[in-house]
Design a protein around this nucleic acid. Structure first.
Length: 845
RNA sequence: GGGCGAUUAGCUCAGGGGGAGAGCACUUCCUUGACACGGAAGGGGUCAGCAGUUCAAAUCUGCUAUCGCCCACCA
């Protein structure tokens, strides 16, 4: 039933509801692995705001999903919600005005105030987690509404979260198995530490920021009559933590001093002068002080030169109240240290520079520089390095053989676009430590471990108590290890819980296992794992993609998927990266309402795989225009072709019709190849190009014959419309479904992708009739346009000058050209080297 | 410092050894029986620069410049 005046209005709501009611995208779990196409959907961070970036990359994946579904694969397309981790924790704090205090007991009757007060209310860990759960549900609904409006073909009965029972169970089970196999281990070691979050941070969460600083020249006095050595440091406040000086072994300025010692300024602590290849003669004065710990190089030196530890930096970012163990020191060392104790790094630096100056130990004026400083990606202050006990997962950072294995996994994986692999490789090659997975947070998956206490109440970390897998998930702060009772918690001879939670990536790295029902649903798991596709953005290759490979490699000795499709960034209209802090984030619902979901998807699909793409309302308008064109062209085709739902290809006899279908066959082959290579954009581009030509030229050429009742024209229109709607369906699911419903049964999204086989009867035909007819018609239009006349103007005569080949191609289409061009008089074909058309128009009335 | 990508019309971008392309914007015209939420036609480019390979280079190779991103050891 074709409407009088087709419209895009309301299509999103109408079809989203229908698809939901009819289960159009429901996963059929009777299918076996070889019939399934499984997608490891990125679970969006629900505490984040809705963002056009979401629309962009999820549309790409959805187009691929729809293509695969039409190709006959049963698409496993679940949706996850990432509600685990620091962003959610922060959001809950701000939203409810609360703060987690794990020492408090659970209050079952606690309700947060309507509006957050000025003072954060301290609540127990369990109360905090409950508020997280509550907020997350609200956020998930907003995302689901967006995805449904956008037309994502996910099976909404197959959702998962990264903090729910299943996720905690899977994370804990995976961790325990790694612990047993020796792939996870704990270690007391210097760790990058965020002093505001009071949390250890992994290499993958670091970013460098350029900060202003200054080289301070500082004098170290020689011992045994040696001269002074002047070092340059950007962190003079760490002088009390100095354990040695170090210079390059070949540096002649210092080679005579190796093996001697100097004393630190102010504190008079004797430290050795040592050679090490990592010291850069070009930097500063070429000799550096090693502190425990100012930077990661200090850690290397400290470890390789086996230096003592003199800790001054506290976990709160302030200098410790007590000085470190210096052994021999200047008489007033402790007094001087007292000037620094309790100060932040910045405050301590200002004070120690004054002290150095007063004591004449400062050489020259500080020289301002800017230098890269390591930050936690969400943090506000530079990271410090503190020694702490943490859990690690081996990732090849300290093991060349394992590193090679992960590089090999990266080569097994098919990357789209291919060059994205180099980001993976450079990351893996640059790893310098194992993956630190413990976080000193409250909201997350707890480590499922307890530690025994000996008779003196000392914790025995070397012999963690593990729960049986059947008990998972556990919360060790409320659950009790086998063989103990709750009243033994914290008592000598009893036990204590591991206080930490896992890094959010320790759970996210299991999304394929989680979505597939690992161990919880073995039947489903066998049908969908390992998966086909991981779609994701390039900036989390080092985290999400790599860590997912690590987990599957250890647990299943294989890749978690065969293909990775890496999307680019969405930039704001001025091509700046969008970020909350810049305030240039474009929210997606408004433009979807304004232009329509298909138009929004069109914009997204026009962004090439892996290429950064700017938000462009112009492209959305073009998409809208295309959607409207599909409605109107379909209306026309259906209007003239009768109710022929299944055209008989044997009636298509006209060379023009056959020629058009021959080029359509080529288009189908092209779009199919593009989609198979995950290039949705190229598929759409080719289809769109064909379609506009089809509307401008073929529909005009065939119009007269179709009105006159030509069986060939009608069947060709039906064949072409059928195929074109299918080709557009992955990109523009709403408008194609709407048109499909005018003349076909069922959903277009459960029909098959057009194949070259469908058009095989025409594929061998001469494609040149159609373009020849179109070219001459174009010349006639041009003549009318240049004469500033209406396209309705009658043509008195036409002389076509053309080479023989073109004339031969044109001949069978001539009647249609004459009809479409309103040529009333004679048409003559003349030999010429190039196409030229003489057109004589009727006089204006 | 190492790596990846980009540089094509005013703008946004395709293309990838043999005619320089699309959309937007711009100009002119057309209310025609699918479409004014239209349509037709047109103007506009030293394909960043230099060198090389080739019968032929926007395209392949090398170098340079500029931009973006990733990585790297904060003295």
């Amino acid at each position: 039933m074709v409407p009088e005046k087709p419209s895009l209005d309301g299509l999103e709501d109408k079809w989203a509801a229908r698809w939901d009611a009819e289960g159009t995208y429901r996963f059929d779990r009777t299918k076996t692995r070889d019939e399934v196409y499984a997608i490891d959907t990125p679970p969006p961070t629900v505490s984040g705001s809705l963002h056009v970036g979401h629309v962009f990359s999820y549309t790409h994946t959805d187009a691929v999903a729809r293509f695969q579904r039409m190709r006959g694969r049963e698409v496993f397309y679940p949706m996850g919600w990432d509600d685990n981790g620091v962003p959610t924790e922060r959001r809950v704090q701000n939203y409810f005005g609360v703060r987690c205090d794990p020492s408090l007991p659970y209050d079952p009757g606690f309700t947060p105030p309507d509006k957050p007060g000025k003072q954060e209310i301290p609540i127990s860990r369990q109360n905090f987690v409950e508020l997280c759960d509550r907020l997350v549900v609200e956020d998930e609904q907003k995302f689901e509404e967006l995805w449904r409006t956008l037309g994502l073909s996910v099976d909404w009965s197959m959702t998962y979260t990264t903090i729910g029972d299943r996720a905690r169970r899977a994370s804990q089970r995976a961790f325990l198995r790694m612990l047993v196999r020796g792939e996870a281990y704990q270690s007391e070691a210097p760790t990058l530490w965020d002093v505001d979050f009071r949390m250890a941070v992994s290499q993958a969460e670091l970013e460098d920021r350029e900060l202003p600083g200054a080289y301070h020249g500082v004098r170290f006095a020689g011992t045994n009559g040696d001269g002074d050595i002047v070092i340059e440091t950007t962190r003079p406040e760490l002088i009390p933590a100095c354990v040695a000086l170090v210079a390059h072994p070949d540096d002649e300025r210092y080679s005579s001093r190796f093996g001697t010692s100097v004393t630190t300024p102010l504190f008079g602590v004797e430290v050795p002068v040592l050679p090490h290849a990592l010291a850069d003669p070009e930097k500063g004065s070429g000799i550096a002080m090693i502190c425990t710990f100012g930077d990661t190089t200090d850690v290397v030196w400290w470890r390789e030169l086996q230096l003592p530890t003199r800790t001054v930096m506290g976990r709160d970012g302030r200098l410790l109240a007590q000085p470190p163990d210096w052994g021999e020191a200047a008489p007033d060392a402790e007094t001087l240290y007292g000037e620094l104790a309790g100060k932040t790094a910045k405050q301590a630096q200002a004070r120690i520079v004054e002290l150095l100056d007063e004591h004449g130990e400062l050489v020259g004026a500080p020289k301002p520089i800017t230098h890269p400083v390591k930050f936690y990606e969400r943090g506000d202050r530079p990271l410090e390095i503190v020694s702490s006990r943490q859990w690690y997962i081996r990732n090849g950072g300290r093991d060349p053989e394992l590193r090679a294995a992960f590089l090999e996994r990266g080569r097994e994986l098919r990357w789209h676009p291919a060059h994205m692999r180099s980001r993976y490789e450079s990351w893996v090659e640059g790893l310098n430590s194992d993956w630190l997975i413990s976080r000193q947070r409250y909201f997350g998956v707890p480590f499922p471990l307890w530690y025994p206490l000996d008779a003196d109440g000392e914790v025995d970390y070397a012999h963690p108590l593990m729960p049986d897998e059947a008990r998972l998930p556990v919360d060790p702060t409320s659950d009790v290890p086998e063989g103990y009772t709750d009243d033994m918690r914290g008592k000598p001879g009893g036990f204590v819980a591991d206080p930490d939670v896992m890094d959010t990536w320790a759970t996210s790295s299991l999304t394929p296992e989680l979505a597939a029902g690992w161990e919880d649903d073995p039947d489903l798991f066998a049908r969908v794992f390992p998966m086909d596709l991981r779609p994701q953005a390039f900036e989390i290759i080092r985290t999400w993609l790599f860590s997912t490979i690590v987990r599957a490699h250890f647990e299943f000795d294989g890749l978690p998927w065969t293909d990775a499709a890496i999307s680019g960034w969405v930039l704001d209209p001025d091509r700046k990266k969008m970020s909350k802090s810049k305030g240039n984030v474009v929210t997606p619902m408004e433009p979807i309402r304004q232009f329509g979901a298909d138009a929004m998807r069109y914009w997204a699909a026009s962004g090439r795989p892996g290429v950064d793409t700017a938000v462009d309302e112009g492209q959305m308008k073009v998409g809208r225009r295309l959607a409207i064109k599909i409605l109107n062209a379909s209306k026309f085709a259906l209007g003239v072709m009768g109710d022929d739902g299944s055209p008989d290809s044997s009636t298509i006899t006209e060379p023009l019709d056959r020629s058009m279908l021959a080029s359509l066959a080529a288009l189908v082959a092209n779009a199919t190849t593009s989609f198979e290579g995950y290039d949705y954009a190229r598929a759409l581009d080719a289809t769109e190009r064909f379609f506009w030509g089809f509307c401008d030229d073929y529909l005009e050429l065939v119009k007269g014959r179709a009105y006159a009742g030509s069986d060939s024209a009608r069947a060709a229109l039906a064949t072409a419309l059928d195929a074109l709607l299918r080709l557009f369906a992955p990109h523009m699911p709403f408008v194609t479904e709407e048109v499909w419903s005018w003349w076909r049964e069922g959903s277009i999204h459960r029909t098959s992708w057009p194949s070259s086989d469908d058009l095989a009867a025409f594929a061998a035909d001469d494609v040149s009739v159609y373009p020849a007819g179109a070219a001459v018609l174009g010349e006639i239009r041009k003549a009318k346009s240049e004469a500033k006349r209406s396209m309705r103007t009658d043509v008195l005569s036409v002389v076509v000058h053309a080479p023989a080949e073109l004339r031969r191609a044109l001949e069978p289409a001539l009647d249609d050209v004459r009809g479409a061009g309103r040529v009333a008089g004679p048409t003559e074909l003349v030999e010429a080297a190039e196409l030229g058309v003489e057109v004589v128009l009727a006089d204006p009335e």
